[in-house]
């Protein structure tokens, strides 16, 4: 058999445009790979059971929870994390600015995951209703804000981009 199981593998994972080649144990979760092997600690780690969404990233264009996937499964994948949101000069992206303007965060623990969920939602549905927004961020828990300002931030940016006629970056 050409393909044999192994307890560790060499993987190439592209995160925010940079390709990292690493040896990784098969039991390593993607969230730990990002945080500990690549030192990208913007992706948070909360419940470890797939419920809170703080570890949310985008993998091959799909919104996922990185505590529910193995790092070896990301071999060859393109991953987007919160570190990739800001503009190249370090200024906030429109989405980040909208969160800041609407005071859509308090402690900030949920924020990286919520911003990626918002980005994914707006890419698929640029003009969501409030109900669609709440459904779109259902997998992301926030213990602080009560969600009202998060929903408002997403509404504001949707209205803004409709005005400017461009899609959310």
């Amino acid at each position: 058999m050409s393909n044999t199981p192994s307890v560790s593998r060499s993987v190439a994972v592209t995160v925010n445009g940079t390709t990292y080649q690493r040896d990784v144990a098969a039991r390593t979760l993607l969230v730990h790979f990002l945080r500990e092997n690549l030192n990208l600690t913007g992706t948070h780690f909360g419940c470890d059971t797939g419920h809170c969404g703080s570890c949310t990233v985008i993998a091959n264009g799909k919104l996922i929870k990185s505590c529910m996937m193995l790092a070896v499964q990301a071999d060859g994948a393109q991953i987007e994390t919160v570190e990739g949101l800001a503009e190249p000069d370090g200024s906030l992206s429109p989405l980040q600015q909208a969160f800041s303007d609407a005071h859509a965060l308090q402690c900030g623990f949920c924020t990286p995951g919520l911003m990626l969920a918002s980005k994914y939602l707006l890419e698929h549905n640029p003009n969501p209703t409030e109900e669609e927004i709440r459904r779109g961020i259902k997998g992301n828990l926030c213990r602080c804000t009560g969600y009202v300002n998060i929903v408002r931030a997403i509404q504001n940016i949707a209205a803004d981009s409709a005005e400017k006629g461009d899609l959310v970056k």
Partner: peptide, 23 residues
């Protein structure tokens, strides 16, 4: 939580998946 040590394999076909399961 750290998983127990585990082996991983990504088969290229359904036949290979079944062969791996049986090996």
């Amino acid at each position: 939580m750290l998983l127990k040590e585990i082996s991983y394999v990504r088969p290229h076909s359904i036949d290979e998946a079944v062969a791996l399961l049986n090996s």
